[in-house]
Design a binder for these strands. Structure first.
Lengths: 143, 143
DNA sequence: TTATTATTGATAATGGTTTTCATTATCAAT
DNA sequence: ATTGATAATGAAAACCATTATCAATAATAA
């Protein structure tokens, strides 16, 4: 089992949640995926290993993983219904609009911009949200 | 009538849309608001001037304004159902989490970051979304 | 093993958004 | 100003993602 998955199982247990079969399968899929997944995506995939899984359980599992900061929502033009393993620290998402692959990049360089904006607009800035869209290396070479 | 509103009316006409009363009222409200508004917000407000307005017309008007690049969606943790007059050029949204007021700021400083990310991740970058959350001056002084 | 209780899946309910359709209003041509 | 083609409207129904309900089941502590 991948390290990341083990870590997530521990986090769930530490918070008092039971490690049930449906929960383990859903957690394993999203903890190892490099693509953003909708509840329905997850459901269809997880059903292969747990045929009587209910869609509702996917929603409930995502809810817990989100509260634990393990997954985050992905915002897209066509909607904001997909999830992905959350960033480690101050990182932001870069999405391939062709294949859906997701990568994280550091947002360290953003602080100066935030300071400037805070001063110009007289706001105190608490949070920020940044996402990039583009084409990954593989999809570039495929034309 | 505010300049911005006149401009939007012209844009609608230029695209072959008729300037009906419901459409004019919805357009005027969102073109002059400094707050992001949900379809429901717009509906309730527009009804004051057009009592038999249907919620559906609000959705249809927003759809057209969005296609014309006049309004943009506002992404928030609690959902992405609000709209606001679109940015002029390379600008991004700064939202007050207390009162909902929205301001735009220049995103010119972001290009170097995008270049770095494109190189490091071997992506070509086509689009980006940035939104800041904070507290505006008024809300700061009110505690 | 047993008791407790969190979790599950099926079903129904919810709420926001879209579609359908008969009626109405706009606007170009007269 | 009037007309006619047709875009636009509002009401109702349909749709779909998400949430709540509840009896049955499964995971953990004792």
């Amino acid at each position: 089992m991948p390290d990341q998955t083990t870590t997530w199982f521990s986090a769930l247990e530490r918070s008092g949640y039971r490690l049930t079969k449906p929960r383990r399968i859903v957690t394993e899929i999203i903890s190892t995926s490099h693509y953003s997944l909708t509840p329905s995506d997850l459901f269809l995939d997880a059903r292969k290993k747990c045929p009587n899984l209910g869609l509702v359980t996917v929603y409930r599992t995502l809810e817990k993983l989100e509260m634990l900061g393990l997954v985050q929502r992905v915002h897209q033009p066509c909607g904001c219904h997909a999830y992905i393993a959350a960033a480690q620290g101050h990182e932001h998402l870069l999405l391939c609009t062709t294949c859906g692959k997701a990568e994280f990049f550091s947002g360290d360089q953003l602080q100066p911009l935030f300071d400037t904006v805070a001063q110009k607009c007289s706001f105190t800035i608490q949070d920020h949200w940044l996402q990039l869209f583009g084409t990954c290396k593989d999809c570039q070479s495929k034309g």
